[in-house]
Design a protein around this nucleic acid. Structure first.
Lengths: 252, 252
DNA sequence: CGGCATTTTGACAATCGTCAATCAGTGTGG
DNA sequence: CCACACTGATTGACGATTGTCAAAATGCCG
């Protein structure tokens, strides 16, 4: 059940067999959550941490004018709101984008985990720092790239992230995101999302049919978007190279 | 020397007298650094952590086309790159925006600090999580606000942050940032920065003369920018209210 | 089949970018 | 003390990306 989560953490720290066992026996409740439901809301002080086991969720904030900004996509294996106890209160909300399987982990379990298992503690902090690095890259994306490249960059990221947890098959992956949600993520309008999507399709950089995205030539998309995956830190710390994410990247 | 740093950490955790003493006696080298110098560069594996003691620094990334995106402003008391050892490598650079006093703290000192002083450890992580929350708000700012409000929002933030470390006097503070740097921060051009700056001035929301910014009526600027300081988490965790940052906000 | 969310399209407007020139401020050296 | 150089600020004209509004088309699900 928690495999994608554990696999992810192993990138961040060297877990012992004992650590892995601890994680596998993690006391938690797993629940299916419907589409567009909030897991936590801004100003909450949640009692549980949440792990996305399957599906797709997001961090977001609402604005006074009804606008929404999505600030992160949470894929299987991602842990949300682990550290709220340190900050005290949520400063944003978390919601599902599609029906998900969500693990609910009581806060005291998290605290025991972090206090008694240094490697796990380190891995969880690693995950948090990767989130931060991703936010920085998203900021670069919004600030300095045109809508087409920005969108291409997002697709590169999701491709690499899904690939690292084994959710990419033959260069394609499930992509259940609506154009409205894409717009809320990229900070542009749905109309413009539609235009850019067609532009990328017409340029042969990706295809999207029936909630499934295919990136036939990742290298071309990567080049177009000037995507550099370093910020995802998906390689063990020792490795030097900027590229590998543990699997092979498709035909280039 | 380290007062602003310690004062900041005390917001994040309850430090004991012993913790405070430890921080005061922190072994570190303090050096003046000239303007526009890199403290660390993308891909570095720095041996020291850095604390800004005075001046102003920033996190940034360069793009292939020569563009620069600034992703954070670092004010006195801010600690940069504390956790690189977990991620392994810098995925961005840090540079001074004006001449600064910088404390260099050897990595092993940081590690002793975090392993032997739980409250300090917690405080440092708190600071890191606040950085992350700030990034999220910047993302909202870029994605969903027009340039004028976005800029106003940034001014609100810097006002509150500087106020919290005692650097605001009579509603004004040192603001040595050039319009080019503002542009690199907001993701717009210098020409547009200039236009928006004049617009805010004309609207009486702030004044900027001789590297000094004055915000006569913070409440009005705050309202214009739809600024909500919660994300800065500058209140002790127990407090409920969304507003206070430990000092009084100026005339409204 | 009907209802509803989502996608697509077109015309038009506005924000923001580009280019290029001028102006102002500051520091340096003769 | 002034000329000079340099950086930063300002301005205007124009163009491009992106937003707005509104309607139509498509696809999905009961």
């Amino acid at each position: 059940m928690l495999e994608p989560f554990i696999r992810k953490l192993e990138i961040g720290a060297d877990l012992s067999a004992d650590d892995r066992e601890t994680l596998k026996r993690l006391i938690c409740q797993v629940r299916p959550v419907g589409v567009a439901e909030d897991l936590v809301r801004e100003d909450d002080r949640p009692d549980n941490a949440h792990i996305v086991l399957s599906g797709l969720a997001c961090r977001y904030k609402m604005l006074a004018d009804g606008g929404r900004q999505i600030m992160a996509w949470l894929v299987p294996g991602d842990l949300c709101d682990m550290h709220v106890s340190i900050l005290g209160r949520m400063d944003h909300s978390i919601a599902t984008l599609v029906p998900c399987q969500i693990a609910y982990i009581p806060r005291n379990v998290i605290e025991e985990l972090t206090s008694k298992h240094p490697a796990i503690n380190r891995a969880l902090w690693w995950a948090s720092l990767v989130d931060e690095a991703t936010l920085r890259e998203w900021l670069v994306n919004m600030g300095r790239r045109t809508a087409d490249k920005q969108m291409a960059h997002l697709f590169c990221e999701i491709y690499v992230r899904l690939d690292s947890i084994g959710l990419v098959t033959e260069s394609s992956f499930s992509f259940p995101v609506t154009q409205v949600e894409l717009a809320d993520t990229l900070g542009i309008t749905t109309v413009h999302v539609n235009r850019m999507l067609h532009q990328l399709r017409d340029a042969g950089l990706m295809t999207l049919r029936g909630k499934r995205m295919t990136i036939q030539n990742f290298e071309r998309l990567r080049h177009f978007a000037e995507f550099n995956p370093n910020y995802l830190h998906l390689t063990k710390r020792q490795n030097g190279g900027g590229w590998a994410n543990g699997r092979e990247t498709p035909a280039s």
